[in-house]
Design a protein around this nucleic acid. Structure first.
Length: 416
DNA sequence: TCTGGGGTCCTAGGACCC
DNA sequence: TCTGGGGTCCTAGGACCC
């Protein structure tokens, strides 16, 4: 049974190039939110030695000298193109699983192997011709192997690759040439553990005793091992679930923060934004988490990440409950002695909101429910039209932090 | 009072991915 | 001086129950 992976090349950069041909053929990077670090690189930028996640200040000289073009991300554009490119993937195979903005697995088990290459070629051609987005497609007996095939194609400049079922020789060669760190599912920590045990390549990994792997890396290690040996066993949750499981809004602050009012206002805004997104997807949330983090580059305070979670007896969708609860959770983890550099809100256990009035509600509850829905509706329809968060709860108001204006601050004084 | 093990649920934290 | 944001899943440990 075969599976495919369709993956856009250097997606954010390719999106920018599709709108501005002058960016083609030259070194380009796209930067993160506050232009903090590199989140996408063109091949030319990769050749210059620029790393994923590299801080912007380290490549300043390249940018100033004109050798490198750096762009702030345009995530609306990327999302728009992402939808179109996934549509193309869907059009050529019976079923796909959207895996990320720029990748999808192609479920092709009913299609004879001999047709796969031409399907891949058609996808690549259509994405290029209609969207100007370069795509690579790899087919293999498991998702993990399909990832490896796709990566190898990118390195060798091919746009489609097929690792046939039962082709041990090619598979082994592929595994031998893949450093274990590059495997899907092996990060920095696991890699270090594997090196210690003398495992350096995917082939070393696949040849290791399964009991040992299971013990060292847990269930995920076992799955990776089976997948490398051609067994199909990583399932993705996207398949039969209409909604994602969580929604989060998290930010790195422009400075280390000890000011409670500032944090309270930030957290309230993130909570309100999460609530709006939740309603947009017509979901309700069963739980909410608020977390803070210290600056990882601050020697004294690094590594502290307090968080607190609340489970709702009845799942919620309204801004008032969500913001109020977020504030209570913040109070549980806030410590004025500790400077925080990052924080956020996560709504979890999300399910479809059936928008049904429960049979067991009292008259008064039904009334309250209806008023609340109308209020939320009004909020959601007002905000997009008149600038961000024009209407908000008192707890979202802030006078802003001295020297900092990110578009969220309002002209109101923060309530005491 | 002491002694035992197993199951479940919850929370916090870790690891990884793109 | 300056280092992203949005996700998923697993595990360990404590509380509680039988």
């Amino acid at each position: 049974m075969m599976v495919g992976l369709a993956d856009c090349n250097n997606f954010f950069v390719s999106c920018e190039r599709s709108r501005n041909g002058a960016l083609k053929g030259i070194p380009v990077v796209v930067l993160s939110n506050n232009d903090g670090c590199v989140v996408a690189r063109s091949n030319e930028a990769k050749s210059m030695g620029i790393k994923m996640g590299q801080p912007a200040f380290e490549i300043r000289d390249h940018i100033l000298s004109g050798k490198l073009t750096a762009l702030s991300g345009n995530h609306l554009l990327y999302r728009e193109i992402s939808i179109k490119v996934h549509d193309i993937f869907r059009r050529h195979v019976p079923k796909t699983i959207d895996y990320s903005v720029d990748e999808a697995f192609l479920l092709v088990d009913e299609i004879p192997e001999r047709y796969l290459r031409s399907i891949g070629e058609r996808i690549v051609r259509e994405a290029l011709e209609s969207l100007d987005i370069p795509v690579t497609v790899g087919f293999a007996p498991s998702k993990t192997l399909a990832k490896l095939v796709t990566d190898e194609c990118k390195h060798t400049g091919k746009s489609v690759g097929v690792l046939a079922e039962g082709d041990r020789e090619t598979a082994e060669k592929l595994l031998r040439e893949t450093p274990v760190r590059e495997l899907w599912g092996v990060g920095r920590r696991q890699a270090a553990k594997l090196y210690t045990a003398g495992i350096y390549t995917a082939a070393d990994f696949a040849a290791r005793d399964l009991v040992w792997i299971r013990k060292q890396l847990g269930i995920n290690g076992e799955k990776m091992w089976r997948e490398l040996n051609g067994e199909h066993c990583i399932e993705l949750n996207h398949v039969d679930r209409p909604l994602q499981d969580s929604i989060s809004e998290t930010r790195t602050f422009p400075m280390d923060v000890t000011d409670y009012d500032y944090l309270r206002a930030r957290i309230a805004i993130y909570a309100a934004d999460c609530a709006a997104r939740l309603r947009k997807m017509q979901g309700v949330a069963g739980e909410i988490t608020v977390f803070l983090s210290t600056n990882p580059f601050n020697q004294r305070f690094a590594g502290y990440h307090p968080s607190a979670t609340h489970r709702f007896a009845d799942p919620v969708y309204d801004t008032v409950s969500i913001v109020t609860t977020a504030n209570n959770l913040l109070n549980r983890i806030f410590n004025p002695e500790i400077p925080f550099k990052r924080g956020g809100v996560i709504l979890g256990d999300i399910r479809p909101d059936r928008r049904l009035v429960s049979l067991f509600m009292t008259e008064e509850e039904i009334h309250r429910e209806n008023v609340n829905r109308r209020l939320m509706n009004a909020l959601d329809h007002l905000n997009p039209n008149v600038g961000r968060s024009c209407v908000k709860l008192a707890s979202q108001m802030t006078s802003g932090h001295p020297g900092h204006n990110d578009g969220y601050s309002s002209s109101f004084q923060s309530p005491k």
